[in-house]
Nucleic acid binder design. Structure first.
Lengths: 144, 144
DNA sequence: GGCGATATGTTATTATATTACATCGTGTCG
DNA sequence: CGACACGATGTAATATAATAACATATCGCC
């Protein structure tokens, strides 16, 4: 890594601000989604004190596709595919037991939604697709 | 009341409690989604005073499919199809200008998600599909 | 250095949702 | 009838999520 950063664990983009990098780092190290206040708690040691600092970083990160907001959880995850920040529709499968989130894309669904939009005259700015349930591990080990 | 309803505007089910009926009525009369606190404000005149009364009614209503929660809005709508409470996946198109919500189902999407779930070993309990954008009227009149 | 744009920091406030606990009504069973 | 279970209700307090308003700092650039 010769070109910007030396002491960092992870760098996904070389122009993140300190707060953005802290927030994204915390998200990336977590194996479950984190709420803004979870993030705040984890980053107090790094000097972050107020919710707004978290929300501002999250806003930039989600704008750039480096993090995603899970609407049904009011929580956030790092993008699974950090380098090639995805651009299209993304769907999430959220395990209600272990919290793990699986991120996937499905162009057939995307097309289908686009088709509906066209027919209805609806201009889509953004789509939210979230599945809640049990992941393979949790569903198998403890058949709810 | 001789077992169900005489003076009511709308009755979707004959076994709703008073609070549930009030909440569902308010939702049904609104042309845009309402938050729990919106509902509370509108129903103070009917004796509802505390958020919990609203949330409890909403919980029963959403369980039964008579109302739906819009995750991306933290708000609620009456089911568009009150009698035949839908059972499968439902998608929503939410206009960011006028607030109108269009509720639709798409079995192709449902199948596709089911296919993904099967492949991933994920057991889906519930799916959230929400489009944000401009409805036909708003997109046409003011091309954002 | 001066200036604009963006990022930060801090406090207070608003909005959304739940916990805990007391009460009431209705049915069942003895 | 009375005891009990159960579900709905009411109320207060609190937890959680998000934003408003304002002041300060930092960086690129001319």
């Amino acid at each position: 890594m010769a070109h910007s950063h030396e002491g960092h664990d992870h760098v996904w983009a070389d122009d993140l601000t300190r707060n953005q990098e802290l927030v994204l780092g915390a998200l990336a190290h977590s194996d479950a989604p984190l709420s803004a206040y979870d993030l705040l708690d984890r980053l107090r040691g790094d000097g972050l004190r107020a919710p707004l600092q978290i929300y501002r970083a999250l806003e930039k990160l989600t704008e750039r596709g480096l993090a995603h907001r899970l609407e049904s959880l009011n929580a956030f995850v790092a993008c699974a595919d950090a380098n090639c920040h995805r651009t299209g529709m993304i769907a999430f499968a959220i395990c209600e037991k272990c919290g793990k989130v699986d991120e996937f894309a499905d162009s057939a669904i995307e097309k289908r939604l686009a088709g509906w939009s066209k027919d209805a005259g609806f201009t889509t700015h953004r789509a939210t697709i979230e599945l809640r349930g049990l992941c393979a591990g949790c569903g198998a080990s403890s058949p709810a």
